[in-house]
Design a protein around this nucleic acid. Structure first.
Lengths: 230, 230
DNA sequence: GTATACTCTAAACGCTGTTCAGGAGGCGAT
DNA sequence: ATCGCCTCCTGAACAGCGTTTAGAGTATAC
Protein backbone atom coordinates (compact mmCIF):
# COMPACT_ATOMS: atom_id res chain seq x y z
CA UNK A 1 0.00 0.00 0.00
CA UNK A 2 1.42 3.33 -1.00
CA UNK A 3 -0.58 5.34 1.44
CA UNK A 4 2.53 7.18 2.58
CA UNK A 5 2.31 9.42 -0.44
CA UNK A 6 -0.68 11.60 0.24
CA UNK A 7 -2.37 11.29 -3.16
CA UNK A 8 -0.64 8.76 -5.32
CA UNK A 9 -1.40 8.11 -8.94
CA UNK A 10 -4.19 5.57 -9.42
CA UNK A 11 -3.12 2.06 -10.37
CA UNK A 12 -4.19 0.53 -13.66
CA UNK A 13 -6.75 -1.69 -12.01
CA UNK A 14 -8.22 1.24 -10.14
CA UNK A 15 -8.65 3.01 -13.43
CA UNK A 16 -10.40 0.05 -14.96
CA UNK A 17 -12.62 -0.33 -11.94
CA UNK A 18 -13.63 3.29 -12.09
CA UNK A 19 -14.36 3.02 -15.78
CA UNK A 20 -16.48 -0.08 -15.33
CA UNK A 21 -18.34 1.58 -12.55
CA UNK A 22 -19.07 4.58 -14.71
CA UNK A 23 -20.18 2.36 -17.56
CA UNK A 24 -22.67 0.43 -15.46
CA UNK A 25 -23.92 3.67 -13.98
CA UNK A 26 -24.56 4.82 -17.50
CA UNK A 27 -26.27 1.61 -18.53
CA UNK A 28 -28.60 1.80 -15.56
CA UNK A 29 -29.47 5.40 -16.28
CA UNK A 30 -30.13 4.68 -19.94
CA UNK A 31 -32.37 1.72 -19.26
CA UNK A 32 -34.22 3.59 -16.53
CA UNK A 33 -34.64 6.70 -18.65
CA UNK A 34 -36.22 4.78 -21.46
CA UNK A 35 -38.67 3.10 -19.10
CA UNK A 36 -39.52 6.27 -17.16
CA UNK A 37 -40.19 8.15 -20.35
CA UNK A 38 -42.28 5.38 -21.83
CA UNK A 39 -44.29 4.36 -18.78
CA UNK A 40 -44.02 7.16 -16.24
CA UNK A 41 -42.37 7.27 -12.83
CA UNK A 42 -44.46 5.07 -10.63
CA UNK A 43 -45.11 2.42 -13.27
CA UNK A 44 -41.39 1.62 -13.42
CA UNK A 45 -40.07 -0.70 -10.73
CA UNK A 46 -36.51 -1.11 -9.62
CA UNK A 47 -36.84 -4.81 -10.28
CA UNK A 48 -37.72 -4.16 -13.92
CA UNK A 49 -34.77 -1.81 -14.26
CA UNK A 50 -32.52 -4.42 -12.71
CA UNK A 51 -33.88 -7.02 -15.10
CA UNK A 52 -33.26 -4.75 -18.06
CA UNK A 53 -29.59 -4.30 -17.17
CA UNK A 54 -29.35 -7.95 -16.09
CA UNK A 55 -28.35 -7.41 -12.50
CA UNK A 56 -30.09 -8.17 -9.26
CA UNK A 57 -32.22 -5.39 -7.70
CA UNK A 58 -29.81 -4.90 -4.84
CA UNK A 59 -27.01 -3.98 -7.19
CA UNK A 60 -28.78 -0.79 -8.23
CA UNK A 61 -28.36 0.42 -4.68
CA UNK A 62 -24.61 0.41 -5.03
CA UNK A 63 -24.92 2.93 -7.82
CA UNK A 64 -27.85 5.03 -6.63
CA UNK A 65 -28.97 5.65 -3.11
CA UNK A 66 -32.60 4.92 -3.95
CA UNK A 67 -35.16 5.18 -6.72
CA UNK A 68 -35.53 8.92 -6.26
CA UNK A 69 -31.79 9.49 -6.58
CA UNK A 70 -31.80 7.56 -9.84
CA UNK A 71 -34.57 9.61 -11.40
CA UNK A 72 -33.00 12.80 -10.09
CA UNK A 73 -29.70 11.90 -11.73
CA UNK A 74 -31.51 11.37 -15.02
CA UNK A 75 -33.35 14.64 -14.71
CA UNK A 76 -30.13 16.44 -13.92
CA UNK A 77 -28.41 15.18 -17.01
CA UNK A 78 -31.36 15.68 -19.36
CA UNK A 79 -32.01 19.16 -18.04
CA UNK A 80 -28.54 20.07 -19.12
CA UNK A 81 -29.17 18.58 -22.55
CA UNK A 82 -32.39 20.51 -23.04
CA UNK A 83 -30.74 23.68 -21.87
CA UNK A 84 -27.91 23.26 -24.36
CA UNK A 85 -30.37 22.39 -27.10
CA UNK A 86 -32.20 25.65 -26.47
CA UNK A 87 -29.06 27.72 -26.69
CA UNK A 88 -27.53 25.85 -29.62
CA UNK A 89 -26.21 27.65 -32.67
CA UNK A 90 -27.49 31.06 -31.86
CA UNK A 91 -26.15 33.65 -34.23
CA UNK A 92 -29.24 35.79 -34.01
CA UNK A 93 -28.26 39.06 -32.49
CA UNK A 94 -31.88 40.12 -32.22
CA UNK A 95 -33.06 39.05 -28.74
CA UNK A 96 -36.71 39.07 -29.72
CA UNK A 97 -36.14 36.67 -32.58
CA UNK A 98 -34.05 34.58 -30.25
CA UNK A 99 -36.85 34.39 -27.71
CA UNK A 100 -39.32 33.29 -30.36
CA UNK A 101 -36.99 30.63 -31.65
CA UNK A 102 -36.20 29.37 -28.16
CA UNK A 103 -39.88 29.15 -27.37
CA UNK A 104 -40.46 27.18 -30.54
CA UNK A 105 -37.68 24.72 -29.76
CA UNK A 106 -38.83 24.37 -26.19
CA UNK A 107 -42.43 23.63 -27.14
CA UNK A 108 -41.41 21.23 -29.89
CA UNK A 109 -39.23 19.33 -27.47
CA UNK A 110 -41.92 19.13 -24.82
CA UNK A 111 -44.55 17.87 -27.22
CA UNK A 112 -42.21 15.33 -28.73
CA UNK A 113 -41.36 13.93 -25.28
CA UNK A 114 -44.45 14.38 -23.11
CA UNK A 115 -43.52 11.91 -20.39
CA UNK A 116 -40.02 13.24 -20.30
CA UNK A 117 -41.36 16.75 -20.04
CA UNK A 118 -43.64 15.91 -17.17
CA UNK A 119 -40.87 14.03 -15.41
CA UNK A 120 -38.58 17.03 -15.46
CA UNK A 121 -41.00 19.90 -15.04
CA UNK A 122 -43.99 18.63 -13.10
CA UNK A 123 -42.46 16.69 -10.24
CA UNK A 124 -45.03 15.21 -7.88
CA UNK A 125 -43.69 16.45 -4.54
CA UNK A 126 -42.83 12.87 -3.64
CA UNK A 127 -39.27 12.84 -4.87
CA UNK A 128 -38.76 16.57 -4.52
CA UNK A 129 -38.57 16.44 -0.76
CA UNK A 130 -34.89 15.73 -0.43
CA UNK A 131 -33.85 17.86 -3.32
CA UNK A 132 -30.64 19.00 -1.73
CA UNK A 133 -29.08 16.73 -4.28
CA UNK A 134 -30.72 18.57 -7.17
CA UNK A 135 -29.56 21.92 -5.89
CA UNK A 136 -25.98 21.02 -5.18
CA UNK A 137 -23.18 21.19 -7.72
CA UNK A 138 -24.65 24.46 -9.01
CA UNK A 139 -27.61 22.45 -10.28
CA UNK A 140 -30.72 24.44 -9.74
CA UNK A 141 -33.98 22.89 -10.89
CA UNK A 142 -34.62 23.05 -14.60
CA UNK A 143 -37.39 25.57 -14.17
CA UNK A 144 -34.92 27.95 -12.57
CA UNK A 145 -32.34 27.38 -15.25
CA UNK A 146 -34.85 28.15 -17.96
CA UNK A 147 -35.96 31.29 -16.19
CA UNK A 148 -32.42 32.52 -15.87
CA UNK A 149 -31.73 31.84 -19.54
CA UNK A 150 -34.82 33.80 -20.45
CA UNK A 151 -33.79 36.47 -18.00
CA UNK A 152 -30.58 37.17 -19.87
CA UNK A 153 -32.23 37.44 -23.25
CA UNK A 154 -35.09 39.55 -21.97
CA UNK A 155 -32.67 41.88 -20.25
CA UNK A 156 -30.88 42.21 -23.55
CA UNK A 157 -34.15 43.08 -25.28
CA UNK A 158 -35.01 45.65 -22.66
CA UNK A 159 -31.62 47.33 -22.99
CA UNK A 160 -32.17 47.62 -26.71
CA UNK A 161 -35.43 49.38 -26.03
CA UNK A 162 -37.59 46.82 -27.78
CA UNK A 163 -40.09 46.50 -24.97
CA UNK A 164 -42.75 48.95 -23.89
CA UNK A 165 -41.54 51.37 -21.27
CA UNK A 166 -43.64 49.88 -18.50
CA UNK A 167 -41.78 46.56 -18.65
CA UNK A 168 -38.56 47.31 -16.82
CA UNK A 169 -38.08 44.16 -14.79
CA UNK A 170 -36.57 41.27 -16.78
CA UNK A 171 -37.50 38.67 -14.16
CA UNK A 172 -41.14 39.61 -14.43
CA UNK A 173 -41.17 39.43 -18.19
CA UNK A 174 -39.25 36.17 -18.24
CA UNK A 175 -41.61 34.55 -15.76
CA UNK A 176 -44.61 35.62 -17.79
CA UNK A 177 -43.17 34.29 -21.01
CA UNK A 178 -42.28 31.00 -19.46
CA UNK A 179 -45.67 30.61 -17.79
CA UNK A 180 -47.39 31.06 -21.12
CA UNK A 181 -45.25 28.59 -22.98
CA UNK A 182 -45.28 26.05 -20.18
CA UNK A 183 -49.05 26.23 -19.96
CA UNK A 184 -49.40 25.82 -23.69
CA UNK A 185 -47.18 22.75 -23.71
CA UNK A 186 -49.03 21.17 -20.80
CA UNK A 187 -52.36 21.85 -22.44
CA UNK A 188 -51.20 20.15 -25.60
CA UNK A 189 -49.77 17.20 -23.71
CA UNK A 190 -52.94 16.81 -21.70
CA UNK A 191 -55.21 16.99 -24.70
CA UNK A 192 -53.08 14.57 -26.68
CA UNK A 193 -52.94 11.91 -23.96
CA UNK A 194 -56.39 12.26 -22.46
CA UNK A 195 -58.55 12.71 -25.49
CA UNK A 196 -59.52 10.26 -28.12
CA UNK A 197 -62.40 11.60 -30.19
CA UNK A 198 -63.87 13.76 -27.46
CA UNK A 199 -66.80 16.16 -27.53
CA UNK A 200 -67.50 18.51 -30.40
CA UNK A 201 -64.65 19.43 -32.67
CA UNK A 202 -63.73 22.66 -30.91
CA UNK A 203 -60.16 21.49 -30.93
CA UNK A 204 -57.45 23.65 -32.34
CA UNK A 205 -54.08 22.43 -33.57
CA UNK A 206 -51.10 23.27 -31.44
CA UNK A 207 -49.51 25.31 -34.18
CA UNK A 208 -52.44 27.72 -34.12
CA UNK A 209 -52.34 28.05 -30.34
CA UNK A 210 -48.62 28.65 -30.36
CA UNK A 211 -48.96 31.37 -32.96
CA UNK A 212 -51.76 33.04 -31.04
CA UNK A 213 -49.62 33.06 -27.94
CA UNK A 214 -46.74 34.48 -29.92
CA UNK A 215 -48.89 37.23 -31.41
CA UNK A 216 -50.27 38.21 -28.04
CA UNK A 217 -46.88 38.31 -26.40
CA UNK A 218 -45.36 40.31 -29.23
CA UNK A 219 -48.27 42.75 -29.31
CA UNK A 220 -48.32 42.97 -25.55
CA UNK A 221 -44.64 43.33 -24.76
CA UNK A 222 -43.09 45.08 -27.74
CA UNK A 223 -43.13 48.71 -28.66
CA UNK A 224 -45.07 49.19 -31.88
CA UNK A 225 -41.98 50.20 -33.78
CA UNK A 226 -40.03 47.18 -32.58
CA UNK A 227 -42.36 44.58 -34.00
CA UNK A 228 -40.88 42.25 -36.60
CA UNK A 229 -41.95 42.64 -40.20
CA UNK A 230 -44.78 40.35 -41.21
CA UNK B 1 -91.70 -10.74 -2.63
CA UNK B 2 -93.54 -8.19 -4.70
CA UNK B 3 -91.67 -8.85 -7.90
CA UNK B 4 -94.90 -9.02 -9.80
CA UNK B 5 -95.13 -5.25 -9.87
CA UNK B 6 -92.38 -4.12 -12.23
CA UNK B 7 -90.92 -1.28 -10.14
CA UNK B 8 -92.45 -1.06 -6.72
CA UNK B 9 -91.88 1.73 -4.24
CA UNK B 10 -88.81 1.19 -2.06
CA UNK B 11 -89.45 -0.06 1.45
CA UNK B 12 -88.48 1.99 4.47
CA UNK B 13 -85.49 -0.19 5.23
CA UNK B 14 -84.26 0.10 1.70
CA UNK B 15 -84.41 3.86 2.03
CA UNK B 16 -82.42 3.80 5.23
CA UNK B 17 -79.89 1.45 3.70
CA UNK B 18 -79.38 3.73 0.72
CA UNK B 19 -78.99 6.75 2.96
CA UNK B 20 -76.42 5.04 5.15
CA UNK B 21 -74.54 3.93 2.08
CA UNK B 22 -74.45 7.48 0.78
CA UNK B 23 -73.33 8.78 4.16
CA UNK B 24 -70.40 6.40 4.41
CA UNK B 25 -69.45 7.14 0.81
CA UNK B 26 -69.34 10.78 1.82
CA UNK B 27 -67.30 10.14 4.93
CA UNK B 28 -64.74 8.16 2.96
CA UNK B 29 -64.44 10.85 0.33
CA UNK B 30 -64.05 13.58 2.93
CA UNK B 31 -61.35 11.76 4.84
CA UNK B 32 -59.54 10.82 1.65
CA UNK B 33 -59.77 14.32 0.21
CA UNK B 34 -58.20 15.84 3.27
CA UNK B 35 -55.33 13.38 3.18
CA UNK B 36 -54.76 13.64 -0.57
CA UNK B 37 -54.67 17.41 -0.40
CA UNK B 38 -52.37 17.45 2.59
CA UNK B 39 -49.94 14.70 1.60
CA UNK B 40 -50.37 14.07 -2.12
CA UNK B 41 -51.68 11.07 -4.00
CA UNK B 42 -49.07 8.40 -3.53
CA UNK B 43 -48.32 9.23 0.10
CA UNK B 44 -51.88 8.32 1.09
CA UNK B 45 -52.57 4.63 1.62
CA UNK B 46 -55.94 2.94 1.58
CA UNK B 47 -55.17 1.56 5.00
CA UNK B 48 -54.74 5.06 6.40
CA UNK B 49 -58.01 6.13 4.84
CA UNK B 50 -59.72 3.06 6.28
CA UNK B 51 -58.24 3.85 9.69
CA UNK B 52 -59.48 7.44 9.48
CA UNK B 53 -63.06 6.35 8.86
CA UNK B 54 -62.71 3.45 11.30
CA UNK B 55 -63.41 0.60 8.91
CA UNK B 56 -61.28 -2.21 7.62
CA UNK B 57 -59.40 -1.65 4.35
CA UNK B 58 -61.56 -4.13 2.50
CA UNK B 59 -64.68 -2.11 3.20
CA UNK B 60 -63.48 0.75 1.04
CA UNK B 61 -63.69 -1.57 -1.94
CA UNK B 62 -67.43 -1.92 -1.51
CA UNK B 63 -67.75 1.81 -2.05
CA UNK B 64 -65.06 2.44 -4.63
CA UNK B 65 -63.70 0.06 -7.18
CA UNK B 66 -60.11 0.93 -6.34
CA UNK B 67 -57.88 3.76 -5.18
CA UNK B 68 -58.03 5.46 -8.57
CA UNK B 69 -61.81 5.43 -8.60
CA UNK B 70 -61.85 7.09 -5.19
CA UNK B 71 -59.56 9.92 -6.20
CA UNK B 72 -61.45 10.31 -9.46
CA UNK B 73 -64.73 10.65 -7.59
CA UNK B 74 -63.18 13.36 -5.43
CA UNK B 75 -61.82 15.18 -8.44
CA UNK B 76 -65.18 14.99 -10.14
CA UNK B 77 -66.97 16.59 -7.25
CA UNK B 78 -64.37 19.27 -6.54
CA UNK B 79 -64.12 20.18 -10.19
CA UNK B 80 -67.76 21.06 -10.09
CA UNK B 81 -67.23 23.14 -6.96
CA UNK B 82 -64.37 25.10 -8.48
CA UNK B 83 -66.37 25.63 -11.64
CA UNK B 84 -69.30 27.01 -9.68
CA UNK B 85 -66.98 29.16 -7.60
CA UNK B 86 -65.61 30.74 -10.77
CA UNK B 87 -69.04 31.57 -12.10
CA UNK B 88 -70.51 32.70 -8.81
CA UNK B 89 -72.34 35.99 -8.46
CA UNK B 90 -71.54 37.38 -11.82
CA UNK B 91 -73.44 40.55 -12.52
CA UNK B 92 -70.69 42.01 -14.64
CA UNK B 93 -72.03 42.43 -18.10
CA UNK B 94 -68.60 43.31 -19.42
CA UNK B 95 -67.00 40.06 -20.57
CA UNK B 96 -63.47 41.43 -20.34
CA UNK B 97 -63.91 42.38 -16.72
CA UNK B 98 -65.46 39.00 -16.13
CA UNK B 99 -62.45 37.24 -17.63
CA UNK B 100 -60.07 39.19 -15.44
CA UNK B 101 -62.08 38.45 -12.33
CA UNK B 102 -62.36 34.77 -13.19
CA UNK B 103 -58.63 34.56 -13.74
CA UNK B 104 -58.04 36.18 -10.39
CA UNK B 105 -60.34 33.77 -8.58
CA UNK B 106 -58.85 30.82 -10.39
CA UNK B 107 -55.28 31.75 -9.54
CA UNK B 108 -56.15 32.52 -5.94
CA UNK B 109 -57.82 29.17 -5.55
CA UNK B 110 -54.91 27.30 -7.09
CA UNK B 111 -52.33 28.99 -4.92
CA UNK B 112 -54.38 28.49 -1.80
CA UNK B 113 -54.74 24.76 -2.52
CA UNK B 114 -51.58 23.68 -4.33
CA UNK B 115 -51.92 19.95 -3.77
CA UNK B 116 -55.56 20.06 -4.63
CA UNK B 117 -54.71 21.96 -7.77
CA UNK B 118 -52.10 19.49 -8.86
CA UNK B 119 -54.39 16.59 -8.10
CA UNK B 120 -57.10 17.92 -10.36
CA UNK B 121 -55.11 19.52 -13.14
CA UNK B 122 -51.82 17.70 -13.42
CA UNK B 123 -52.75 14.04 -13.30
CA UNK B 124 -49.78 11.73 -13.61
CA UNK B 125 -50.96 9.43 -16.39
CA UNK B 126 -51.16 6.60 -13.89
CA UNK B 127 -54.79 7.00 -12.91
CA UNK B 128 -55.85 8.66 -16.14
CA UNK B 129 -55.69 5.43 -18.07
CA UNK B 130 -59.18 4.25 -17.41
CA UNK B 131 -60.78 7.64 -17.49
CA UNK B 132 -63.96 6.44 -19.12
CA UNK B 133 -65.36 7.06 -15.71
CA UNK B 134 -64.30 10.69 -15.69
CA UNK B 135 -65.85 11.31 -19.06
CA UNK B 136 -69.17 9.63 -18.47
CA UNK B 137 -72.18 11.35 -16.93
CA UNK B 138 -71.40 14.43 -18.99
CA UNK B 139 -68.30 14.88 -16.85
CA UNK B 140 -65.49 16.02 -19.05
CA UNK B 141 -62.15 16.63 -17.39
CA UNK B 142 -61.87 19.88 -15.49
CA UNK B 143 -59.48 21.33 -18.01
CA UNK B 144 -62.14 20.92 -20.68
CA UNK B 145 -64.82 22.43 -18.50
CA UNK B 146 -62.69 25.47 -17.82
CA UNK B 147 -61.92 25.91 -21.49
CA UNK B 148 -65.59 25.77 -22.38
CA UNK B 149 -66.46 28.32 -19.69
CA UNK B 150 -63.77 30.62 -21.05
CA UNK B 151 -64.99 29.91 -24.55
CA UNK B 152 -68.42 31.33 -23.82
CA UNK B 153 -67.11 34.52 -22.27
CA UNK B 154 -64.51 35.06 -24.96
CA UNK B 155 -67.10 34.54 -27.64
CA UNK B 156 -69.18 37.16 -25.93
CA UNK B 157 -66.24 39.56 -25.94
CA UNK B 158 -65.57 38.93 -29.61
CA UNK B 159 -69.18 39.61 -30.52
CA UNK B 160 -68.98 42.93 -28.72
CA UNK B 161 -65.99 43.82 -30.82
CA UNK B 162 -63.62 44.19 -27.88
CA UNK B 163 -60.86 42.09 -29.40
CA UNK B 164 -58.55 42.93 -32.23
CA UNK B 165 -59.88 41.91 -35.59
CA UNK B 166 -57.37 39.12 -36.08
CA UNK B 167 -58.73 37.18 -33.13
CA UNK B 168 -61.85 35.59 -34.50
CA UNK B 169 -61.68 32.11 -33.02
CA UNK B 170 -62.88 31.95 -29.38
CA UNK B 171 -61.36 28.50 -28.81
CA UNK B 172 -57.95 29.79 -29.73
CA UNK B 173 -58.18 32.80 -27.47
CA UNK B 174 -59.60 30.77 -24.59
CA UNK B 175 -56.82 28.19 -24.86
CA UNK B 176 -54.19 30.91 -24.83
CA UNK B 177 -55.67 32.63 -21.81
CA UNK B 178 -55.90 29.40 -19.89
CA UNK B 179 -52.38 28.34 -20.80
CA UNK B 180 -51.03 31.60 -19.45
CA UNK B 181 -52.91 31.45 -16.19
CA UNK B 182 -52.27 27.77 -15.66
CA UNK B 183 -48.56 28.27 -16.26
CA UNK B 184 -48.46 31.17 -13.84
CA UNK B 185 -50.18 29.16 -11.12
CA UNK B 186 -47.89 26.19 -11.61
CA UNK B 187 -44.84 28.42 -11.52
CA UNK B 188 -45.99 29.91 -8.25
CA UNK B 189 -46.80 26.52 -6.76
CA UNK B 190 -43.45 25.14 -7.84
CA UNK B 191 -41.48 28.05 -6.48
CA UNK B 192 -43.36 28.03 -3.22
CA UNK B 193 -42.86 24.34 -2.53
CA UNK B 194 -39.40 23.82 -3.98
CA UNK B 195 -37.60 26.88 -2.81
CA UNK B 196 -36.48 27.90 0.59
CA UNK B 197 -34.00 30.72 0.40
CA UNK B 198 -32.68 29.87 -3.03
CA UNK B 199 -30.15 31.68 -5.20
CA UNK B 200 -30.07 35.44 -5.60
CA UNK B 201 -33.20 37.39 -4.86
CA UNK B 202 -34.46 37.54 -8.43
CA UNK B 203 -37.80 36.40 -7.12
CA UNK B 204 -40.90 38.34 -7.85
CA UNK B 205 -44.14 38.18 -5.90
CA UNK B 206 -47.03 36.42 -7.54
CA UNK B 207 -49.14 39.55 -7.54
CA UNK B 208 -46.61 41.25 -9.81
CA UNK B 209 -46.45 38.31 -12.18
CA UNK B 210 -50.20 38.08 -12.37
CA UNK B 211 -50.49 41.76 -13.18
CA UNK B 212 -47.84 41.53 -15.86
CA UNK B 213 -49.70 38.64 -17.44
CA UNK B 214 -52.92 40.63 -17.26
CA UNK B 215 -51.33 43.68 -18.86
CA UNK B 216 -49.85 41.66 -21.67
CA UNK B 217 -53.07 39.84 -22.39
CA UNK B 218 -55.10 43.03 -22.34
CA UNK B 219 -52.61 44.85 -24.54
CA UNK B 220 -52.30 41.89 -26.84
CA UNK B 221 -55.90 40.88 -27.27
CA UNK B 222 -57.93 44.06 -26.92
CA UNK B 223 -58.51 46.83 -29.39
CA UNK B 224 -56.94 50.01 -28.12
CA UNK B 225 -60.31 51.68 -27.65
CA UNK B 226 -61.66 48.73 -25.66
CA UNK B 227 -59.07 48.83 -22.91
CA UNK B 228 -60.37 49.49 -19.42
CA UNK B 229 -59.66 52.81 -17.80
CA UNK B 230 -56.59 52.78 -15.59
C1' DG C 1 -0.11 -17.83 -0.23
C1' DT C 2 -2.61 -15.01 2.40
C1' DA C 3 -5.12 -10.94 3.53
C1' DT C 4 -7.87 -7.27 1.79
C1' DA C 5 -11.16 -4.79 -0.80
C1' DC C 6 -14.79 -4.92 -3.78
C1' DT C 7 -19.01 -6.47 -6.36
C1' DC C 8 -22.99 -8.90 -6.69
C1' DT C 9 -26.63 -11.95 -5.09
C1' DA C 10 -30.35 -14.17 -2.41
C1' DA C 11 -33.27 -13.70 1.08
C1' DA C 12 -35.75 -11.18 4.02
C1' DC C 13 -38.56 -7.04 6.01
C1' DG C 14 -42.35 -4.06 6.10
C1' DC C 15 -45.16 -1.86 3.25
C1' DT C 16 -48.55 -1.40 -0.62
C1' DG C 17 -53.20 -2.22 -3.37
C1' DT C 18 -56.38 -5.76 -3.81
C1' DT C 19 -59.21 -10.16 -3.31
C1' DC C 20 -62.06 -13.37 -0.99
C1' DA C 21 -64.17 -16.79 2.20
C1' DG C 22 -66.89 -16.39 5.81
C1' DG C 23 -69.04 -14.33 10.19
C1' DA C 24 -72.83 -11.08 11.93
C1' DG C 25 -77.07 -9.30 11.84
C1' DG C 26 -81.28 -7.20 10.09
C1' DC C 27 -85.06 -8.12 6.86
C1' DG C 28 -89.22 -10.36 4.54
C1' DA C 29 -91.89 -14.45 4.10
C1' DT C 30 -93.87 -18.36 6.08
C1' DA D 1 -91.04 -17.55 16.18
C1' DT D 2 -88.30 -19.45 12.74
C1' DC D 3 -86.25 -19.93 8.59
C1' DG D 4 -83.58 -18.38 4.66
C1' DC D 5 -81.82 -14.41 2.34
C1' DC D 6 -79.30 -10.53 1.60
C1' DT D 7 -76.14 -7.01 2.68
C1' DC D 8 -72.26 -5.27 5.24
C1' DC D 9 -68.01 -5.94 7.15
C1' DT D 10 -63.78 -8.25 8.59
C1' DG D 11 -59.33 -10.87 8.82
C1' DA D 12 -56.30 -13.22 6.39
C1' DA D 13 -54.02 -13.85 2.45
C1' DC D 14 -51.56 -12.68 -2.14
C1' DA D 15 -48.38 -10.65 -5.20
C1' DG D 16 -45.64 -6.96 -5.83
C1' DC D 17 -43.16 -2.86 -4.23
C1' DG D 18 -38.64 -0.28 -2.33
C1' DT D 19 -35.04 -1.28 0.53
C1' DT D 20 -31.53 -3.65 3.72
C1' DT D 21 -28.13 -6.99 4.81
C1' DA D 22 -25.27 -11.21 5.48
C1' DG D 23 -22.37 -13.50 2.95
C1' DA D 24 -20.42 -15.91 -1.37
C1' DG D 25 -17.30 -15.03 -4.99
C1' DT D 26 -13.43 -12.68 -7.20
C1' DA D 27 -9.77 -9.78 -8.30
C1' DT D 28 -6.19 -7.07 -6.31
C1' DA D 29 -2.12 -6.01 -3.02
C1' DC D 30 1.30 -7.62 -0.25
Amino acid sequence: MNENIAESQPSVSELRRDRERAELTERIMDAAREMFVREGYEAVTLRKIALAVQYSPGTIYQYFKDKGALVRAIIRRDSQDLREHLLEEFTLENPVEQLVEMARRYAAWGIAHPNHYRLMLVPPPAWAEQDRELHEHQHTPLERQLLSVLHVVVKNAIERGSLKAKYTEPALVAATLWAGIHGAVLLEIGMATNDRALIGGTDTPFEARFNTLKEVFLDGFLKDEAKPAQ
